[in-house]
Design a protein around this nucleic acid. Structure first.
Length: 294
DNA sequence: CACTTGACCTGTCCGC
DNA sequence: TGCGGACAGGTCAAGT
């Protein structure tokens, strides 16, 4: 479940690993994972040089020298793992997960001219890699709908409150998961930020007072920034560009911690369902709204 | 328009 | 042990 911190971690890894490389060949076997036709691949991807990597929300954008870009969404189980050329030479020692690739979840394989590889793995096939003319990337519906990046200065508490206006009658958790309110938050960081702010996930957006919104705004930024520092969260599938797990869940205060004592007051963490998602919270730090039953 | 639910997929876990 | 079904949760389409 790559969210903003995981995608940012992959982005930073790819910055170091593949920028400047030239694409030698590309193979793919699942149309939804790579919807472009072969002629586009031949013309705009094979032979292209990787110019620049960026992230917007949970999506990665890889700009190529052909004025095309690869738009990549990892959705639930996607991975982008780089494997250096030495692994494909003779007699090189095996190295953990990387020695297993490609595997049964590999959907797309990029080979660079120096023989290094980039694998797009995606067990559940929800994610995609698509080749789009660079000038049209941000015109894609996905990007058009996206709200602001939470980690830029212009994302103020005031901007946050304004964005929440159109979601007044839903739960705050559903609003945080709505990518048009802000970009990049998913199930893990929604729960963590709500705990950090002491706000119950089922609270109606319209019922929150300004100080609570300010605390939530602050908690969102804090949680996302700390998660990037820890290399993101690995629940099961997530890996960074070098095939390594993120360590944030070791530090998570509520996510996947049902039945454990709250770090703040030792009340047992509960798990319920809000906005159709598994939702974790401390019932005393995050006072449930009237009428809420777990 | 606001909001919720189901579909897209597959691996894992739980109960029988 | 085997097997069906629930579950995991990001986004879009379709529903109320």
């Amino acid at each position: 479940m790559p969210e903003l911190p995981e995608v940012e971690t992959v982005k930073r890894g790819l910055d170091k690993l593949i920028v400047g490389k030239k694409v030698l060949s590309v193979s793919h076997d699942w149309p939804k994972s790579f919807p472009n036709v072969q002629s586009e691949v031949d013309e705009f991807l094979v032979g292209a040089i990787i110019n620049r990597i960026s992230r917007r929300g949970k999506a990665l954008i890889i700009d190529l020298s052909t004025n095309y870009s690869l738009v990549i969404h990892l959705k639930m189980t996607g991975q982008l793992v780089y494997v250096g050329a030495e692994r494909f030479g003779a007699g090189h020692p095996n190295d953990s997960l990387i020695s297993e690739l490609p595997d049964s979840s590999t959907r797309v394989t990029f080979v660079f001219t120096d023989k290094s590889h980039l694998f797009f793995n995606d067990q559940r096939k929800f994610g995609y890699v698509k080749l789009v003319p660079t000038p049209h990337v941000l015109e894609l519906d996905f990007f058009q709908r996206l709200g602001p990046e939470p980690l830029v200065d212009s994302f103020t508490s005031k901007e946050f409150a304004k964005r929440l206006q159109k979601r007044k009658n839903t739960s705050i958790k559903a609003a945080l998961l709505d990518q048009s309110v802000l970009a990049g938050v998913g199930n893990i960081y929604a729960d963590e930020a709500l705990f950090g702010a002491g706000v119950h996930p089922a609270r109606r957006v319209g019922s929150l007072q300004k100080p609570q919104l300010e605390r939530l705004h602050e908690a969102l930024i804090e949680v996302l920034a700390e998660a990037i520092e820890k290399g993101g969260s690995t629940d099961r599938n997530y890996r960074d560009a070098e095939g390594k797990k993120g360590s944030y869940l070791t530090f998570a205060k509520v996510f996947r911690r049902e039945g454990e004592p709250c770090m703040s007051d030792s009340t047992l963490i509960l798990k319920t369902r809000v906005a159709g998602r598994g939702t974790h919270y401390c019932p005393t730090c995050q006072k449930p709204p009237r009428g809420f039953r777990a």
